[in-house]
Design a binder for these strands. Structure first.
Lengths: 234, 234
DNA sequence: TATAAAATACCCCTTTGTGGGTATTGCGAC
DNA sequence: GTCGCAATACCCACAAAGGGGTATTTTATA
């Protein structure tokens, strides 16, 4: 133990004395594709201060793992069927405020970066990021700072695609009904079909639709569909 | 050599004598996420008859690799930016007819399965497939047969979502102009905006739009958007 | 209990998209 | 040279969506 700490400190944490208290960063990978966890585990095999200790295929599994195991950091994909990364992050933050979250996603659009940050993620990586960057990001985050991949922060630097309303979290706060309706829109249902399926008036559906577009700051159904597909709601 | 072949034959290919001629299946993984190749490489480390020998991040890189290296089988994601899996498969089949292609994709909808099969893929796996299934699929395919994951063939068994016209390859044969226009639709541009950008009449844009919907057998822009997002055209 | 958010519904009007066709010209392959 | 496909364009009709509001009731939370 004392020997292990000594080795760790002298090799890795020469510039971060605070880290000598961490012998190993325990990482839980949450991604629909298990090979990603396998790959990261293999690539981290030679890195002494971090290790993939668990894998979850869904946001639900993630929460189950967290209920049982000590995890320091969750690496999580945003675009997942079922409970997606944004919703899962909100839940993790609520129940396990000490667990760090690092997004690692195919989605790099600003709305997803902002969503994850607002929900509590400490970092955002594109899925195309090299492993060296993943390692660096993990260390930055475990050191208490935020890490945004250059790929991703370029979007932020380009300015906010959406209004400040988005920063208030409105876009992440789609209601249950709105989520139902956006799914149906993305499934090519007309307003009238939706109204029949949900036993609502046509006017109500139109209103929800308008609210959706305002919240997500899109101009048409096309934007709604893209959002729903990105988040794997359909 | 002779010893190697003997070992291989007695352990793995007892039921497939033809395979004794293959000492090792050389796999090229094509996926935007390198960790997937890393993961598969790690998981195949103990499998003597197959090995990940190369990785390509894009369809373009895939073709470059094939120009230089001997590859037996390409494992390929469908949903990729730039040259996607469907387009890449078409190209590989044209230039390297002896290379086997196995789709390994987040997309499991029937139109993508059919697209890949029509373009020449010998198999289709969902990204959620366990490694054992990947291994099995590779063996089936290298044995000369087609392998469809149960997840995926369930869609096929449920019947064709689209008309027989799709089996003719129409949907994969979107023209250059149609692709331009579907991207713009997915980017929320109105017909009038598209017509201005492309110096066309509004009527022409509407016509293309109708053709797109017919080819892809969708009912509205929502279907077009989903298709474009799935294929990572935007 | 009070308040805010969610859900529901409506009106008016305009814009845009969809469905059903038709036609001509240009280009590439055979 | 012929043929088929892609690109371009058009007409008509009407369905559907979008934009700008308004309002009431229900539900969840502090």
């Amino acid at each position: 133990m004392a020997e292990g700490q000594k080795t760790t400190g002298s090799i890795i944490f020469a510039v971060r004395p605070i880290r000598t208290t961490l012998s190993n960063i325990r990482i839980l990978v949450t991604d629909p594709v298990e090979l990603i966890a396998d790959g990261l585990r293999a690539r981290l095999a030679d890195i002494p201060d971090m290790k993939v200790v668990a894998y979850a295929a869904t946001g639900k599994e993630l929460l189950e793992h967290l209920a049982e195991a000590e995890i320091d950091l969750v690496l999580i994909e945003v675009s997942m069927p079922g409970m997606d990364g944004i919703d899962a992050t909100r839940e993790v933050r609520k129940r396990y405020p000490n667990v760090k979250l690092l997004a690692h996603s195919v989605l790099t659009d600003i709305e997803y970066v902002n969503s994850m940050r607002i929900e509590g993620a400490s970092g955002y990586l594109a899925k195309s990021a090299p492993v060296q960057e993943i390692i660096h990001a993990i260390r930055v985050i475990m050191g208490g700072e935020e890490y945004l991949s250059p790929t991703v922060s370029a979007s932020l630097d380009a300015g906010y695609k959406f209004t400040g309303k988005r920063m208030d979290g409105d876009y992440v706060g789609l209601t249950h009904r709105e989520r139902e309706i956006i799914r149906m829109i993305a499934e090519e249902k007309t307003n009238e079909e939706i109204s029949a399926l949900l036993f609502l008036s046509l006017e109500t559906v139109k209103t929800h639709r308008k609210n959706l577009m305002t919240k997500l700051n899109v101009r048409s159904a096309a934007g709604l569909v893209k959002y729903a597909v990105d988040r794997r709601w359909i």
